[in-house]
Simulated assay, not measured.
Amino acid sequence: MFDIVTIGESMVVFNPTEIGPMRHCQTFRMQMAGAESNVAIGLARLGHSVSWCSRVGDDEFGKYIVNTLRAENVDVSMVRFDSDNRTGLMFKEERKKGLSNVYYYRNESAASKLSEFDIQRAWIRKARILHLTGITPALSESCRSAIFQAIKLAKEEGIPISFDLNMRTKLWEKDIAVSVLTSIMKECHYFLPSYQEGVLLSGIDSVKEMAEYFYQHGPRVVVIKKGAEGSYLLDQDGGRWIPPFRVEQVMDSIGAGDAFAAGFLSGILNGSTNEEATRRGNLLGAYSVSVKGDWEGLPSEKELSQIFTVEDAIR
Rank of each mutant, 00 (worst) to 15 (best):
M1G: 12
F2S: 02
V5T: 02
V5A: 02
V5Q: 01
T6G: 06
S10G: 10
F14V: 01
P16M: 00
P16F: 01
M22S: 04
Q26Y: 03
M30D: 08
Q31T: 14
Q31M: 14
A35T: 09
N38M: 15
A44S: 10
L46P: 07
S49H: 10
S54I: 05
D58H: 10
D59P: 11
D59R: 00
E60G: 13
G62V: 03
G62M: 03
I65M: 02
N67L: 07
L69R: 00
E72I: 01
V74C: 08
V79S: 09
V79A: 07
R80N: 10
F81T: 02
F81N: 02
S83T: 07
S83V: 08
D84K: 15
N85F: 15
M90L: 14
F91G: 01
F91P: 01
F91W: 03
E94A: 00
G98K: 03
G98F: 12
L99E: 14
V102F: 09
V102Q: 06
R106T: 07
R106W: 06
N107Q: 15
E108K: 15
S109H: 02
A110G: 11
S112L: 10
E116L: 09
L132A: 05
L132E: 07
T136K: 01
A138E: 02
E141D: 12
I147F: 07
E157C: 03
P160V: 05
F163N: 10
R168C: 12
K170P: 08
E173K: 12
I176N: 13
A177C: 11
V178K: 00
S179G: 10
S179Y: 13
C188T: 07
C188H: 02
C188K: 00
Y190V: 01
L192V: 04
Q196D: 15
L201A: 03
S202L: 03
S206C: 11
S206M: 10
A211G: 09
E212F: 05
Y213E: 12
Y215D: 06
H217Q: 14
P219L: 05
I224R: 00
I224F: 06
K225A: 11
G227S: 10
Y232C: 05
L233Y: 03
D237T: 13
G239K: 00
P244E: 06
P244N: 04
R246I: 13
E248H: 07
Q249I: 14
D252P: 07
A259H: 01
F260W: 04
A261W: 01
G267V: 00
S272G: 07
E276Q: 14
E276M: 08
R280W: 15
G281C: 13
G285P: 11
S290T: 04
V291S: 03
G293T: 05
W295Y: 13
W295K: 03
E296S: 15
G297L: 02
K302Q: 15
K302M: 12
I307M: 12
D312Q: 07
